[in-house]
Simulated assay, not measured.
Amino acid sequence: MINRRYAFIFFILVTVSLLSACSEEADPDGDGKIKIIAAHNQTSPDNPYQTGMLKFKEVAEEKSGGSIEVEVHAGTIGTEESELVEKLQLGAADVVLVSPGFMTQTGIREVDLFSAPYLFNSYEHWLRVVDGEVGQQMAKIINEKSNNAFKLLGYWTAGVRHFYGKKPLESMDDLKGVSLRTQTSGVIGDFWEATGAIPSSISWGELYQGLQQDVVDASENAYPFFVQQSHHTTPNGKYITETAHDFTTRFLLINGEKFDNYSQEHQTIILEAAKASVEAERAATNKQDIDYKEKAIDEGAVVNEIDRQPFIELAKPIQNNFAEEIDAEQMLQAIRQLAEE
């Protein structure tokens, strides 16, 4: 009986110690204040990512009365998303923004479905997916398969991605043999290889020089991102063809274990700040999609449209095969059904 009593007391002491340790990790100074390192990979101060992160900082600090401090890093602790994912896992960053492609490197392959070319047919379709049941399902997958290392705070957009290169595209045949900076593996790489292009994995930070020096023939991205980096002023970035192959998804993530150790009040404030950041970033991106297209044309870029239907038809079986491979057929079907609403 005595042994049981001591065992119970020991259990209580261990539990209290663990809870105390968790509390100290979330609030190391014990003063009720926490510091959040928030990071994205874009270096331009005008980038929509920065707008979103600064809104997150503003709301978190204001609503907490200063008990939450947010330090925003714009490419200063990593210009590659793989670096940011690693820092989030190691605790060197608390909130980061990453793309589906880089999330697959953590073993969560389902997220790459959201980057499949021509999965979404409009911005409104994208909204119905990410802000609805499918988005909630994906958030749950991310949290569970990462063992709570990642908790989704919201879905940001990165605009509508288009092709840009040394020549305009008049048809899919014009892509044959073209060296294209894009994701080289996964569903994105499969799609571009099927068009006849040759995917290249040159880093974002080196892409301007790569386009300037003929290392790659072309690239693909949304207006706010490639125009801010002056890619359209290079010989291999002058011709923009509006393929609209991706209404882009970005994941705003927080370290789930750290989040769970914050006080209930701080958790609520962080979620409110995340919601405000989603709204601010989406608005900024949509406005810049228009503004930076005009800027590109004013600075000599040539924009043309193309019949997208052949690309759409090419993408469908690739989507089907990938969804089957990652056991996401039902999710793909749900996304397609939302396109018809």
Rank of each mutant, 00 (worst) to 15 (best):
A139H: 05
I12V: 14
P28S: 06
E124Y: 11
L18N: 13
A283N: 08
V130H: 02
I202V: 15
K258P: 00
I335Y: 03
D131H: 11
H231T: 05
A74H: 10
S82C: 15
E81Q: 14
V111P: 03
V160C: 09
E133G: 05
Q228V: 08
A273V: 06
R109G: 00
K151I: 06
E299V: 07
G189C: 04
H40L: 07
V59A: 04
K57L: 06
A197E: 01
I198K: 08
N47M: 07
R282I: 11
F259L: 09
I68D: 01
V129G: 03
D327F: 02
A60I: 05
T233C: 09
N286C: 15
D217Y: 01
E69R: 13
A21T: 14
R161D: 09
Y164D: 06
I108Q: 00
H73F: 12
I306S: 02
G186K: 01
V14W: 08
F11G: 14
E279I: 15
V96W: 00
G196I: 04
Y223H: 09
A276P: 05
V14R: 07
A301H: 00
P224Q: 01
P199W: 00
A139S: 12
A7H: 13
R181N: 09
S277E: 06
K35Q: 12
V129Q: 02
H245A: 03
S146H: 05
T104N: 08
Q183A: 15
D112L: 00
F10E: 15
Y123P: 07
T79C: 07
G91M: 12
E170S: 14
L119R: 02
A334E: 09
R4I: 15
S67Y: 09
G75A: 06
D291E: 13
G196T: 01
R4G: 14
I34C: 07
T43V: 10
K238N: 05
Q319C: 00
H125E: 06
I335G: 02
F322C: 03
E81N: 12
Q212L: 09
F102H: 08
H266N: 11
E86L: 14
K176E: 12
G66H: 05
D131A: 10
S23K: 11
E265S: 10
P199N: 02
V16L: 14
A274V: 04
A284Y: 01
S201A: 14
R5Y: 14
R4H: 14
M172Q: 11
S263T: 09
A74W: 07
T195S: 04
D298M: 12
V129W: 03
V302L: 08
L338P: 00
K316D: 02
H40Q: 12
K275F: 13
D174H: 08
A38C: 11
Y155E: 04
R5S: 13
E220V: 12
E313H: 08
E81H: 11
N3M: 12
T184F: 01
T184P: 03
V302S: 06
I108F: 06
V95W: 05
M53Y: 08
S44V: 03
I37E: 03
E81P: 05
M172N: 08
V95I: 13
K287A: 14
N121C: 09
K140V: 10
S200C: 13
T106I: 15
Q212E: 10
K140E: 13
L88E: 06
Q267E: 07
L90S: 15
H40A: 07
E272G: 06
E133C: 04
D174K: 05
I77F: 08
G101A: 08
A323N: 02
H231A: 03
V278M: 08
E341W: 15
A26Y: 00
